[in-house]
Amino acid sequence: MILVTSATGNIGRCLVRELQESGHAVRATTRDPGGAEFPDGVEVVAGDLEDPDSLRDAFAGVSGFFLLGSPGDVPAILHRAAEAGVRRVVLVSSLLAETHPGSFIGSGALAGEKAVRDSGLEWTVLRPWEFTSNAFWWIPSITEHGSVYSHENPEGSQVVDPADIAAVAASALTELGHEQRIHSLTGPEKLTVAQRVAVLAEELGRPVDFVELSTEQARERMLEYMPAGIVEDMLATEGGDPGLSDTVRRITGRPARSFRQWAREHIAAFG
């Protein structure tokens, strides 16, 4: 049995489906099991990462589990897992742990990584770059104004599809050879915000304008829906280019998915 925590998130949903379709027994945790929908055959249980004791039942009979980020008391979560006989954990960290270790996200990611290394479990750390699904943040301004208002990084970003992160996580949870390994993950190309907006406009079949904001203008907008530490990281971590990783192709046997592929699959959400 493999446990997927954060199972209703962008990565978690893909991972549940990936594991279930490949024939593995899957248990998914969510704070509200009654309000969650998963494929037939997936066991759904209540669990809250902010309350490690709530995961005792979820860990029963589990061989490995998926953990997104560094939620709550990570050492306590890992201790509960070890007590239950869980052998393996796959942690989604952040590539900022490598490129900007002193940043808010980077330092938090390193703390989570240390916890899994110290847990006594077999561990694999995934360090993805920016997610393609961050484009969901633009939905209100696209549907209401036909525009995206954003700070621009002229260097572009190697955005990675959560489905690719899930595919690598599935391999790390079910195959040998990933123990005590760190895998860096990027998409197959570097795209500026303006280029991503142009792709969305093409897939929508209607104009979507890109309006570049100053750093201060972007900060004010982003603080309306993001924690301050994350906002500062997003505005201050340009540079430190991680390059393009071939991890997805190397582990899954297929190339990393492009932003256009992601956009085409999710374009209905943009109205």
Rank of each mutant, 00 (worst) to 15 (best):
A28M: 08
P101R: 12
R127P: 08
P52K: 06
L121G: 03
P188W: 03
V90S: 10
P162G: 01
S93E: 07
L78M: 11
P207K: 00
H178E: 09
A46W: 05
D118G: 11
V89M: 04
A84S: 13
R196A: 11
E113V: 10
P140W: 14
F104H: 14
L213R: 00
A46I: 00
I267G: 02
H79D: 15
E189F: 01
V231P: 02
V86L: 11
V168N: 10
Q195G: 04
T192A: 00
P140K: 15
G205C: 12
A84K: 09
I77V: 04
V148R: 14
T186F: 02
G12F: 03
L185M: 13
D118E: 15
E50M: 12
L121T: 06
D246Y: 12
V193W: 04
E212V: 04
F65M: 05
D233I: 04
F65T: 05
P33S: 05
M234K: 09
T143M: 13
Y225D: 02
R87S: 11
F38A: 07
A111D: 12
V193Y: 02
I182D: 14
V89P: 08
D118A: 15
D241C: 06
R127E: 09
E50T: 04
M226V: 06
A135D: 08
D53A: 09
M234N: 13
D164S: 00
R250L: 08
D32G: 02
Y149R: 14
R117V: 05
R27P: 04
S6H: 10
L176S: 13
E144H: 09
A76E: 11
E212Y: 01
Y225G: 03
D32R: 13
S22F: 04
R206P: 06
G253H: 03
P188A: 05
L235E: 12
S141I: 14
D73A: 03
D48G: 00
